[in-house]
Design a protein around this nucleic acid. Structure first.
Length: 403
RNA sequence: GGGGAGGUUGCGGAGCGGUCAAACGCAACAGACUGUAAAUCUGUCGGCUGAAUGCCUUCGGAGGUUCGAAUCCUCCCCUCCCCA
């Protein structure tokens, strides 16, 4: 096969990246790859600590996709072992160690979700337990001897925690070393990661040298802000859009991002061309533009990427119906109730639209509950159960009742 | 090994014998408003009971003192700091 020219490759590679360290070295690697007709090995690691991939992850995955389009070989490392250590990056406290079983379950889901974006044919998935589970203590000590405590403590979160008298376990020091060793094993030419990963990525270079290899190129990508517009998108903060989520949720969540993030989302998580991106930027500057319209377009675009054109249109229609016309969705879960009458608080509990009866009653008293569009404010109101009646709890929990 | 400070409800953090299901902030949830699931304002925020000066579970763990313990004592586990 033949590769695109160096310039073409660099153009695509540079799109949306924060840093390429060092860029000249990457150019050299690409030149050599073209000359010898050998693809580069592009690596990114993922810790399956939570089962869902969200848009934040896709920033990197989409970059991997770019490399695939350029003909390179992508190796995704699923950190089944590193996940058990827990990456301390951007955390001010020790992460819980996860059971290997849980991690492996998550890993399966990850793999499936990756392939929504990557070309399965050109993707190699490796679990780092493959080598770490076989390492002897002597080998581990050898790896550990190649780095110093002082250099470890240069890392921002370690130094902060150290200064803030927060615990740092020794095993956490192994995280960057393990990640680096992954690069050694697969002989990575390039490793991608979010900017906060820079430290770990750079250690990869050092450790590869220690093992007599040519160091990898470090390519950093921006960290995507979550729905709140401030903190990074992450599962644990609950401000994320998962790529497996239902169209309606994806659509609604996208609309809830702050307006300032519209362009950034277009740039980092969609396929719109550079040209269109520039046009969107101009429109956003224009006083006549209602940012809402662009945000709706963004929401449709995102839903379309993961669910197709049809679903994206339906999601928008459903959203308008529920939130603008205050109507009910056309599809909602049905719950069978086997008696004629049920008190509203019990009904809420039966339909699992609240977690406890106390909460159910509070919701009723607060005016958050309605039956067939009629607000119920008495927590002891008896509801006659008839096929097709609609219970609404809060803004977006709807249940259709069935006898 | 020695000395000191700590572990409180999702998080941060008060409380230090009854008035404590435990201040306050954040997050979350609901209501009003809105192009929006944003912002803002208001309310709620352990569970159960038709609701109250009621019952149950919760302040690292296990025992104990007391009419009564998040608060006092004993042992254990965990963390941070200083010294070695």
């Amino acid at each position: 096969m033949s590769f695109p020219s160096v310039n073409e490759q660099m153009d695509l590679i540079r799109r949306g990246t924060v840093e390429i360290l060092p860029e000249e070295e990457l150019v050299k690697k690409i030149e050599r790859s073209i000359k010898k007709n050998i693809p580069l090995v592009i690596k990114q690691g993922f810790d399956p600590t939570a089962p869902d991939i969200h848009l934040g992850h896709t920033v990197g995955i989409r970059k991997l996709r770019h490399f695939q389009e350029l003909g390179h070989r992508v190796v995704v490392i699923i950190g089944d072992y590193t996940a058990m250590v827990g990456d301390p990056s951007e955390k001010n406290s020790t992460r819980p160690k996860l059971a290997h079983e849980t991690v492996m379950e998550h890993a399966q889901t990850y793999r499936r979700q990756f392939m929504k974006i990557l070309d399965e044919e050109k993707t190699e998935v490796r679990y780092n337990g493959e080598w770490f589970s076989k390492m002897s203590f002597a080998e581990i000590m050898n790896l550990a001897s190649k780095f110093t405590v002082a250099r470890m403590l240069e890392r921002d979160d370690f130094s902060k925690r150290y200064a803030g008298r927060q615990p740092i376990s020794i095993h956490e020091f192994f995280y960057p070393l393990m990640q680096a060793y992954d690069s050694v094993v697969i002989r990575a030419d390039v490793e991608l990661g979010a900017t906060e990963q820079k430290f770990n990525l750079v250690i990869g270079r050092n450790i590869q040298k220690e093992f007599g290899q040519e160091p990898q190129i470090v390519l950093t990508l921006p960290v995507l802000e979550g729905l709140d517009g401030k903190q990074r998108m992450s599962k644990s903060l609950g401000n994320y859009i998962g790529i497996d989520e239902a169209p309606a949720d994806m659509y609604g969540k996208t609309l809830s991002i702050p307006d300032e993030l519209i362009l950034r989302y277009f740039e980092l998580v969609t396929d719109v061309s550079g040209k269109e991106l520039a046009q969107i930027a101009r429109q956003l500057q224009h006083p006549e533009t209602n940012p809402r319209d662009l945000k709706r377009y963004l929401a449709r675009t995102i839903v379309r990427m993961y669910h197709g054109e049809q679903e994206s249109i339906r999601a928008e229609e459903a959203f308008d119906r529920i939130f603008i016309k205050k109507d009910i969705p056309d599809e909602m879960p049905e719950v069978h109730i086997s008696s004629d009458e049920v008190r509203i608080d019990d009904l809420i509990l039966l339909t699992k639209t609240a977690d406890s009866k106390g909460q159910a009653r509070r919701l009723v008293k607060g005016g958050g509950v309605s039956i067939d569009g009629r607000k119920i404010s008495d927590p002891f109101y008896m509801v006659r159960i008839k096929d097709g009646r609609v219970l609404k709890v809060g803004k977006r929990r709807f249940v259709k009742l069935k006898r």
